[in-house]
Design a binder for these strands. Structure first.
Length: 225
DNA sequence: GCGACAG
DNA sequence: ATCTTGTCGC
């Protein structure tokens, strides 16, 4: 797929203050419309670290069968520290490089982190979505901002994730009796659709198959020197 | 001022 | 994220 190189080069900050300014600018580009059709190719993205080295993986699954159809794993080096709220600046460069290596263009990006459930409403999923133009959702293991009420014990149960009086995402129980995961809109998808996609991607485990495969792929890459 | 804080 | 053994439970 094509890489939005110009956007990255033009928008890449070095300081935290500049990074926040970039988020404030790009947040206005998030598209709130819904996914037009059922995604044929769904991609999972993740990054693993070992000191200053890192490996990013993008695994593409068939949205129907969840069978893997493509993958790309790239190595790189840390270029931005982990700062809560600026997480995307640490992972986006490597993830874009991974997307560029694919022989397929995903119809949906499932990110390991938040979308709108972010202090400035512009988490990793929004950032990747806006930069690529591809629909994206955030599926995080823990909350970052917001709180929610109790969820029913059954798989499929949800609760609104509310921050500062605003619904920024949903807590979703992906398996009976297990800890929920946190889903939020990234770009070109509505929350109900994001939740529905996450449930389709979690037939057996707590986390989406996309996330599990990408996590395994990037870790494996780092372990193999 | 004191914690909390996606991965 | 990553550092890290055994252990409780299905």
């Amino acid at each position: 797929m094509q890489r939005p190189t110009s956007a990255v080069q033009r928008e890449w900050p070095v300081t935290a203050a500049d990074a926040v300014a970039v988020q404030e600018e790009l947040r206005g580009l998030v598209d709130a419309t819904d996914l037009g059709t059922t995604p044929r190719y769904v991609a999972g993205l993740d990054v693993a670290y070992e000191g200053d080295r890192l490996a990013a993986a993008v695994v593409v699954l068939d949205g129907e069968s969840l069978a893997e159809v493509d993958r790309a794993v790239v190595r790189g080096e840390t270029t931005f520290p982990y700062v809560p709220g600026l997480f995307a600046f640490r992972e986006v460069p490597a993830l874009l490089a991974g997307l560029e290596q694919l022989g397929t263009t995903p119809d949906l990006l499932v990110c390991d982190g938040q979308g709108l459930a972010h202090p400035r409403r512009f988490g990793l999923a929004c950032h990747l979505g806006v930069l690529t133009g591809i629909p994206a959702i955030g599926a995080a293991k823990t909350t970052f901002v917001g709180s929610h009420g109790e969820l029913a014990r059954e798989r499929g149960a949800t609760a609104e994730l509310v921050d500062d009086g605003e619904v920024v995402g949903a807590a979703v129980r992906t398996q009976d009796g297990i800890k929920p995961i946190y889903v939020s809109v990234g770009h070109r998808v509505t929350l109900p659709t994001a939740v529905a996609q996450v449930l389709r991607l979690t037939p057996h485990y707590r986390l989406p198959e996309t996330t599990r495969l990408a996590d395994r792929a990037c870790r494996e890459e780092l372990s193999h020197e």
